[in-house]
Design a protein around this nucleic acid. Structure first.
Lengths: 352, 352
DNA sequence: TTGTAAGCGTTATCAC
DNA sequence: GTGATAACGCTTACAA
């Protein structure tokens, strides 16, 4: 078992100085053709690779990006990671992942672990608990320490950083308009509590669409789910709530769900109650994943393009990281970007 | 914007030496109560945290685990990551993720990027392309350099490392036996090409189950899919192949699918052909995710417990990492463990 | 009780 | 053309 070889060892073996080896390997013209060749050959033989950690310490940058997301077992988030990883790798960065599990404490701890030198910047989506408590000091702190953050999907305006979001209001509006156009008269929405920004905005889009078409919103048709994490218990609870919704509103003929799981649940419950889809009930969902595509009936969706979001976020972050190097942290007023990724409607079997 | 504070700065501010600061912060009894208090207060005020990179360099270990998986947009793999992250965090480790995208080259490059000091060990599942080419030099090399690897799910025996697998043969057998017990006479299998070990083993389990029940296996009932990555094109192709299978074997009354997607596809195609589930056709799938649980009909599965696999893999790796510290790399014959995680049958609507 | 110095692996500056 | 030295931030013998 040969341990990884270092400059020092090469230097000793070849009886030259460390700096000579370093220069030779970086092809410095300072070094004679001869020694260069010799050193490079030796290094190749022993499969020398510079130690990343040493480089990170020296350069005060790690070339790695920290990702903090609420959970990873979720198509949207894993798509985003795929996108981030794609451009990160292309641009020479690694990706280190922390999961907050929707918990404020875990989010804080994870960020602290990574912020102490392990990474150059964050890409993150905020935990529900954090959104609820509205305690964002850990974000402002890391930003104040000069570590840039890019937020995506679940963002909060007051934090000065780049953001990548989808136009939730517009997407929701489009979905509901589709239902209206398709003849739905009593459209329910299954959404999250308002402190989750995407839920709130999609609810807003729903309301706006109704208003635009002079339809009165009925509060009984608006079901706001309290969901922390989707455990089995929560799923049972979800089903009950949805069943309640249908039972007390027999005339529902359209459902707009803010995520796939809600949509699938709505369909399941509706079927149990004997409703035919899409004839008796049409369903559209905001979505990110396989569920809508592969379930039967497949579900018409407003798709979020998670991978595109990830790619954009990574590019924003890396651009900022590499820009910092140039302008010697002068006190120019930093200006942050909020990029909106377009959604689009994919029609499948759950609508007419 | 205050940059992260260092020992050096604290030392200067308080007019003591760096080592005094270091010791004071680590609560060394060498330092007088007085200065200790003073230094700790100051450090707290400025929110001092030791720089991870410097620690990694000093300690020659990073306390981070490298994960290399084929893809992340996949419930099984993201569950595994969840499991790894859970125990890694609990034991003070971080997790850095690289995706091979099923490509040999990306797997090699990703491992090289990480092996140069960024991590202490790997947890990985082998890319299909690598399995196909049977080129495992990158694994043996990193192991030879003293960096431990734990493989899971897609493993290869000749590599000396710990492994975490499910008992694919047994699980498959159980699935097929269930179908037989439920009265199926013509059971088809939808599996992968044989170079994917899990596919091969599950196929083997299928064959064994048939044999045990004195049923002759028919090659026309064995559909081996060539899948690299599930792009849209591949999915269309998959549907065609499955349709072919049903068309040319009208008497199929049971399907054992080695993964969810194949199962969902089988159901979709079967319905298109007018088959009722589970009356005309029963389906069981190896599985990892939401699809089987939330699709309609929900699918009876052999579940893989991805999270448990991840937890076990992380524990094996960290145990090995922390054991190494003790036995001063003496040449004791290393002995590696292969842990088998039990599967279990979850009955849902796709079987009687 | 406090400080000095070496070392982790690298690169950059400057001297020879 | 080559080498010594300092520095990145930290810990830890060893001195003082």
């Amino acid at each position: 078992m040969k341990r990884k070889i270092t400059l020092k060892q090469i230097a000793k073996e070849l009886d030259v100085s460390i700096s000579t080896v370093s220069k030779a390997l970086r092809n410095s013209i300072e070094i004679s053709e001869d020694t260069r060749q010799k050193i490079q050959a030796f290094a190749k033989l022993y499969n020398y690779r510079p130690n990343n950690i040493a480089l990170s310490l020296k350069n005060r940058k790690t070339k790695t990006i920290g990702i903090i997301i609420p959970e990873i077992v979720h198509h949207f988030f894993s798509k985003v990671i795929t996108g981030i990883e794609l451009v990160a790798n292309k641009r020479g960065y690694n990706v280190i992942v922390g999961l907050s599990n929707e918990s404020f404490d875990k989010e804080v701890i994870n960020m602290q672990m990574l912020a102490n030198g392990s990474i150059d910047g964050f890409i993150l989506s905020i935990a529900k608990e954090t959104l609820q408590q509205q305690d964002y000091h850990h974000f402002t702190e890391t930003i104040n320490q000069g570590m840039p953050i890019v937020m995506f999907d679940r963002v909060v305006n007051e934090i000065p950083c780049d953001k990548v979001i989808v136009d939730d209001v517009k997407g929701a509006k489009e979905a509901v308009e589709k239902l209206i156009t398709n003849g739905c008269k009593n459209i329910a929405i299954i959404t999250t509590k308002d402190y989750v920004s995407v839920g709130r905005l999609r609810t807003q889009g729903y309301l706006e669409a109704l208003e635009d078409h002079k339809i009165n919103a009925k509060s009984s048709l608006i079901l706001k789910i309290e969901d922390k994490l989707m455990s089995d218990d929560h799923i049972d609870k979800l089903e009950n709530e949805v069943e309640q919704l249908f039972e007390s509103n027999k005339d529902i003929d359209g459902v707009f769900a803010v995520n796939e799981l809600y949509a699938v649940t709505a369909i399941k419950v509706a079927r149990k109650l004997g409703l035919k889809i899409p004839n008796d009930l049409q369903v559209i969902s905001f979505s990110d994943g396989v569920l809508s595509r592969h379930s039967t009936p497949s579900i018409t969706t407003i798709s979020q393009h998670g991978q595109a979001i990830g790619e954009k976020a990574a590019n924003l972050l890396i651009n900022r990281l590499e820009a910092e190097e140039v302008d010697y942290d002068d006190e120019t007023e930093e200006v942050y970007e909020t990029v909106v990724i377009e959604t689009n409607l994919t029609e499948r079997e759950s609508t007419k």
